[in-house]
Design a protein around this nucleic acid. Structure first.
Lengths: 219, 219
DNA sequence: TGTACATCAGTGAACGCGCGTTCACTGATGTAC
DNA sequence: TGTACATCAGTGAACGCGCGTTCACTGATGTAC
């Protein structure tokens, strides 16, 4: 009996002395545990246990628990950016339709990825001290900013409100709706409609206020 | 030496065997500690230590740490409601002016009372399981709802958008701006303007979209 | 192709620490008479 | 006004537990020749 299984790799659950993907597994562990018990409901040792590894092993990959959380948040922003890019789809078929999709994608991310979402926005990570994290967040916001620019550029007549402001307003509105009503955990508040409907209506009213959208007459 | 000071009450820092205001002091301790280290950065024992009391003492007032947090959140909502009521001032001198004050009060609360704010919105307290907390939150939101109704009622012409929707939109926008840009801690994001300006502009654009406000010609 | 060696990524035992919680207790307060 | 007693709100010691972190170590992998 000299640990035969250790010499096999890639089998169903079989382990070698070297885990091989521990870093990835720690991230997955963190996500599972955040989803289960909130962004502060788990420890470094918990993550190690979840990954089936000794409590000292995570130190090979992260200096401490906060570094792991920051990495989770960074990866979250990267996925978020990709989700937003897919939804925006370069403004097809027209900027307004694509813009509404962007809002829905925001809510969908908050609901389907509550673990990433809370790591990104509610884990209390000081963004100022973490340039990589900040950049990942900025890139995600940038999708919104580019979309806002296109909306403004496509506007009829001489209406050219500042695109940055538009993007910030939509971000804040989406974030507010998501945080209050569309979150994937027990702190979600009840609402007499779907969060998507609420957000879409809000965005349309807002765009109408900017003169970038007109409701159809016959409604 | 038979603990003379114990027999005095109300003096500067002097203590009797019975603390007298421990419950209030525990709440204050929680607020101090949340402000310092975040909503999860302290323990029941910390709160006891801060209040200058043995670690078993808090159990006379709260069943556990979560109960203390929930009480902090509840008190936060009560203060929030009062702050909003003061800002609204029954719609004086006119509903629109008062409504803008309401938005500023939201941001001011988030900035000046980050401890209450994070207990209320970011401590992960399951609101469904806590009727008192939920009611306190509902009462705070109700201020916004009543204000929205007055705004709608005072609207010119036949424009009568649903007040509940208006209130929810403004709540979400305020909450988004506050959570992202006006929070009182290190997770605050940078912004090329003041959060107040951003929110006020957003509210005005939104109200314009509803036909409840018109920008002055000469701007 | 084989061998020696450096490097890497894990182990597991150990430590000091502080937390949550309980317990029998005790000082202070309120009340009945 | 005084006294006896019940009740309340604290004490402080104790416990088991799990965490964070370190350490010397060891199995596995990669590479030079």
């Amino acid at each position: 009996m000299i640990h035969m299984s250790w010499h096999k790799r890639g089998g169903r659950g079989e382990r070698s002395y070297h885990h091989g993907n521990l870093k990835e597994d720690l991230v997955r562990a963190a996500l599972e545990l955040i989803a289960e018990k909130g962004p502060f409901g788990f420890t470094f040792a918990d993550a190690a246990r979840w990954a089936g590894v000794s409590p000292a092993a995570p130190y090979r990959h992260y200096s401490d628990r906060d570094a792991l959380m920051a990495d989770v948040a960074k990866r979250g922003f990267e996925l978020f950016e990709q989700a937003l890019l897919r939804a925006w789809d370069d403004g097809r078929p027209d900027p307004l339709t694509a813009f509404e999709r962007l809002g829905s994608a925001y809510l969908e991310f908050a609901r389907k990825e509550p673990a990433y979402y809370s790591a990104m926005f509610e884990a209390g990570i000081p963004i100022g001290a973490n340039p990589e994290l900040r950049q990942a967040g900025d890139r995600a916001f940038n999708v919104l900013r580019v979309a806002a620019e296109k909306i403004v550029a496509a506007a009829p007549g001489g209406k050219k409100p500042p695109a940055l402001m538009l993007a910030l307003h939509i971000w804040a509105l989406s974030h507010g709706v998501a945080s209050l009503f569309a979150r994937g955990d027990d702190a979600r508040r009840a609402l007499p409609m779907s969060p998507e409907e609420l957000l879409e209506a809000g965005v349309l009213v807002y765009l109408e206020g900017l003169g970038l959208w007109k409701p159809e007459k016959s409604r």
